[in-house]
Simulated scan of single mutants.
Amino acid sequence: MIFIYEDSWENFEPLSLLRPVTETRCGALSFREKLERLFGEDILVIIREELLDLLSECWPELARNANKVPEGRHLFIAAGSVLTEPLAYIDSDELLVDEAENLLGFSTDSLSGYQSAESIQGFLEDADLTKHRIGGRRMLYPWEIFASLELEVTRDFEGELAKGTLDPHATVYGSALRLEKGARVEAGAVIDCRKGPVTVARNTLIKGPTLIEGPCYIGPDTIVDSARLRAGTVLGPCCRAGGEVEASIFHAYVNKHHEGFIGHSYLGEWVNLGAMTANSDLKNNYSEVKVNLRGETISTGLVKFGCIMGDHTKTAIGTLIPTGAMIGIFANILGGGLCSKNIPSFSWGEANVYELKKLLSTAEKVMQRRDVSMGEALKGRIIALYKAYVG
Rank of each mutant, 00 (worst) to 15 (best):
L293V: 12
P197S: 08
K207M: 08
F123I: 08
N332F: 02
G375A: 03
L161G: 07
T362Y: 09
A63T: 09
V45P: 02
G260I: 03
A66R: 00
G236L: 01
A183L: 05
T319G: 02
R230P: 00
V200K: 00
R48P: 11
V289C: 05
R228I: 13
S175G: 13
R155F: 11
D91G: 13
D156T: 11
G182D: 04
K341G: 06
M326V: 15
K68I: 14
A275D: 03
R381I: 04
L75T: 01
L87W: 10
S112G: 06
S265P: 05
C238A: 14
T84Y: 15
F146I: 03
E10I: 11
A170V: 04
E180A: 09
E36Q: 14
L51D: 04
E160C: 13
S148F: 04
L302Y: 07
V245S: 01
G188P: 00
A247T: 12
R228D: 04
L129E: 01
S299H: 14
K341H: 07
L124N: 05
L35T: 02
G113A: 05
F106L: 06
A351K: 15
E49A: 11
V245H: 06
V245N: 04
G80D: 07
L282E: 02
N342H: 13
S8I: 12
E6P: 07
A183T: 10
E61W: 11
I2T: 09
W348F: 09
G135L: 15
C26F: 14
D7E: 12
K290M: 14
L29H: 10
T130V: 14
R178K: 15
A278C: 08
A170P: 04
S56Y: 10
N11Q: 13
P86A: 07
E246V: 14
